[in-house]
Simulated assay, not measured.
Amino acid sequence: MFGGGGMNPRKMKQMMEQMGIDVTELDVEKVVITTSEEELVFSDAQVTRMDAQGQQTYQVVGEPESREKGAIEPAGGDGDESSDAADTDDDNGAAIPDEDVNLVAERAGVDADTAREALEATDGDLAAAIARLE
Rank of each mutant, 00 (worst) to 15 (best):
R107C: 01
S43C: 09
V104L: 03
E68I: 01
P64K: 15
I72N: 15
D87Q: 06
G79A: 02
E38T: 04
Q53P: 02
N92V: 01
V101E: 10
A95Y: 05
K69E: 12
A52H: 03
M50N: 02
G70D: 10
L26M: 15
D90Y: 04
E73A: 13
D111W: 12
P74G: 11
L40H: 12
D78I: 00
E39K: 15
G76D: 03
D111G: 13
A86V: 01
Y58V: 07
Q55G: 00
R49M: 11
E65Y: 07
T34S: 14
V28T: 11
A95T: 01
A45T: 13
L103G: 02
Y58W: 06
G77L: 12
V104P: 07
F42W: 14
D22Q: 05
R49Y: 03
Q59Y: 05
Q46I: 09
N92D: 11
I33R: 14
G76H: 06
V61P: 01
S66D: 02
E38Y: 04
F42A: 14
D91F: 03
M50T: 08
D27S: 11
E106N: 03
E38A: 01
V41F: 08
S66V: 08
P64L: 06
I21M: 07
G109E: 10
E39Q: 15
A86E: 13
V101R: 04
A94N: 08
D100M: 13
I96K: 04
S82P: 00
L103V: 00
V101N: 12
G79T: 01
Y58K: 09
T34Y: 08
D51G: 00
A75H: 06
R49C: 06
A95L: 01
A112C: 05
V110M: 07
L40Q: 14
G62F: 12
S66F: 06
E39L: 07
V23Q: 13
A112N: 15
D91Y: 00
S43H: 10
D98G: 13
A108I: 09
T88A: 02
D78Q: 12
G54S: 01
S66N: 10
A75F: 05
L103C: 05
S43P: 12
A45D: 11
V41E: 15
V60N: 02
K30S: 10
D100Y: 12
Y58L: 12
A45F: 08
Q46M: 08
L40C: 10
E106I: 04
Q56K: 07
